[in-house]
Design a protein around this nucleic acid. Sequence first.
DNA 1: CTTGCGCTGTCAAATTCGTTACACTGCTCG
DNA 2: CGAGCAGTGTAACGAATTTGACAGCGCAAG
Lengths: 288, 288
Amino acid sequence: MPPQRASTVAERLRLMSGELTAAERKLMVALFANYPMAGLGSITDVAREADVSTPSVLRLAKKLGFSGFPAFQEELRAELSAQLQNPISKHERWAADAPDTHILNRFATAAMENLSGSLKLMDHRAFDAIAALLADRRRTIHVAGGRITGSIAAYLVTHLQMARPGVNLVPATQSFWPQYLLDIGKQDVLVFFDIRRYDARMLEFAASAQECGAKIVLITDQWISPIARLAVHSLPLRIEAPSSWDSNIVPLFVAEALVAATVNASWRETEARIAALETLSDQGRRGK
Amino acid sequence: MPPQRASTVAERLRLMSGELTAAERKLMVALFANYPMAGLGSITDVAREADVSTPSVLRLAKKLGFSGFPAFQEELRAELSAQLQNPISKHERWAADAPDTHILNRFATAAMENLSGSLKLMDHRAFDAIAALLADRRRTIHVAGGRITGSIAAYLVTHLQMARPGVNLVPATQSFWPQYLLDIGKQDVLVFFDIRRYDARMLEFAASAQECGAKIVLITDQWISPIARLAVHSLPLRIEAPSSWDSNIVPLFVAEALVAATVNASWRETEARIAALETLSDQGRRGK
DNA sequence: CTTGCGCTGTCAAATTCGTTACACTGCTCG
DNA sequence: CGAGCAGTGTAACGAATTTGACAGCGCAAG
């Protein structure tokens, strides 16, 4: 086990720099030349880079207190990893005065990790392409969700309807689906929310819709719904939660961001619509 | 030599994400969880981290166009090295390769600020008290939302119904409200989602419900709905978004956290219910 | 000049790693 | 319902790495 005094390998090396032999100093110089990347190859690579023999590298590692070269290397990786890690891990206190184990704080941590994890996983060009589809007024939009995700789908529809005409929510009742398919045209866009416990019926529905010529867009979890095979664009999201069920915060996030992107993409047409909606709402309010 | 089309391994993975198998997706998720460090251990480590077998890692590497795992790893190291020398990498990146001004990144920043701001604003004892009310099976729960927040209310109802009996969604159609009031009893709990553009009708409804003896719980924004005067507990949340409309991510967050807290508070009773639900779902699936 | 000590590189053993071959599982299609 | 297939894991092989042992070299002290 490495000593606890100096936290990093670099620090430990500097502390010991007085007691290093010639070969070890060559190694140190080579390592600092681009730290810590230079230490991440095989022991052979490191030795050749510093122009010393392989055992010299091993001897240095042991001198620094590691059990062997792999242990040394793992420490380097851990340091680098910590350095790269998102500052999210900076334990910024969440709910004031509540313990870290409080459900609010645990959920907050999970939500943050899901969000940043999803964004790393996500292809932003797919996102942009979806927004462009949604902004295309020649296309009719249909949004479908399952038992749980139905609320998210409804949320997306509510907002999209404020931004553009021709937006429909696919009914939750599955027996309506066959007749609903009748209204799906060649240029239509179908947005599916499908997260695990994937619904086999929804897959069938997607297949039928695709045969009608509709474009399929999928918002799913990291394990990816089978509908992905039919979709022109898929967004895999992280949805883990410290709970009996999954978290739909990130799907909602995506829905909101898609609406905003859609509005941006067709601002000229949307502007007037939003203004008209405002007027109508005010009238409705005053009228009562 | 790897193909030149996509410059980074991450990019290549995203391009191929549609053609990945289940094990390969697990690897992708694990790799992105801390990219690219997660790929720098031995092939055994990488496999264990993603919970797949060693050959699956190798297969993915070959699928991406590398001659073998070492070639794949060397590419990752090269990327990391380049990234470390560029000061750009200091920017904690959200969506990979997307500019900071991309709507996804702006929304992500807003979501984080809303969440941490809400938690600092929130009284966690009020939260716990609400959870205790929701967990009390002697009380019937009613959840109401407005035009926008209706979806969030529906989401809360869907989940609460899985955890306990006696949970109702107040219908969105306002003309049903008078008759709905008939069913509200003395010990009932009414959860309102009311964020700005507060609905005057909802305030009236809340007042009537309170006169029936129901306990009012309010989830609102930082400007606080007038219903707060009637409520036994209020949770003010931050909901700003870089968009024409407000963000309901934090309200959804609260809904999910409340469900989890409710489940925790009455686990003994809930456990059996969840198990029964599982059984019924499976039967329903197999039965069809 | 010689002796002894410490450092370093060469070599080979042991272990771990990367890779290939094969068998099993679950799904799709006839 | 059975055959075929894609996908996955287990197990064995070969390759590379890591590590220990040993011998040569240089330096310093006697």
